[in-house]
Amino acid sequence: MLDKILNSRFWSWLFKGYGFVFLTFLYLPLGLIFVYSFNANSINMAVWTDFTFDWYLTIFGGANSQSEFDAAFTESPERIFEVVRNSAVVALCASTISTVIGTATAIALQRYNFAGKKFYQALLILPMIVPDIVLGIALLIFFVGAGFELSLLTIIIGHTTFLASYVFIVVSARLAGMDTTLEQASADLGAGPLTTFRRVTLPQIMPGVVGGFLLAFIISLDDVVITYFIAGVGSQTLPIFILAMMRRGLRPQINALAVLLLAFSFVVAAIGLYLRSRKT
């Protein structure tokens, strides 16, 4: 009876309608930023006046048509370039290091049996469930106490501590679904462990490794809370920079910056999701 009810036209329309509402809830707020980013009205963004590219141009150093009031809230292209570069350096380094560490750990836990395996599994989950703010202040206390100067290096270290776990999970899933007979055949034919890894294992788990890398890259690029505590004065990343802009007041330039960041994250995420969904 229930599946008959659920399959009836009324319920299937209800489900479709709800799905539409759900997706609207997810996308309307982001779509709004997109629309506002082209609105020339700098007094009230919610009222449309004219179409403009100015807010984007200010990011890249064009457009001087804005009022003095806007200019006071507009960051220079040099400053934006600097924080974007910081973000890129941090995300690239942190995700590369955590991909190497996470993949090595995944192979160890999937292919070997040893005492303390349970301990490692628990240890790997821990960085993902400790609240960001707790990890952020623990790292801050540690870095200051150990005499590290807060810099891009401390941010890279901080991100790597929790990103390795994400890579581990993605790569493990790939390894678990992999046929081990090929590895055995390669060993039987006289290949050493390194050759077997390079020629047999790695090509097969590559989509997982790349997927893990992209996931780590996005999370690092978007991280606010942990970076907030361990970023030094001269080592702002893009999200921390946007946070500072938001504290000073909502100006149209933030819209344009937000749209560019969103577009970039979505493209990287889409590639990652595609790679993960692809079968061998």
């Binding site: 996308y27 707020p29 999200p239 938001m246 909502l250 937000a258 960041l261 969103l262």
Partner: peptide, 16 residues
């Protein structure tokens, strides 16, 4: 997909 949108940007959207 929205999971990969920056947290600050999503909060900013609700401010708007």
């Amino acid at each position: 997909l929205p999971f990969f949108a920056n947290m600050l940007v999503r909060i900013y959207a609700w401010l708007l």
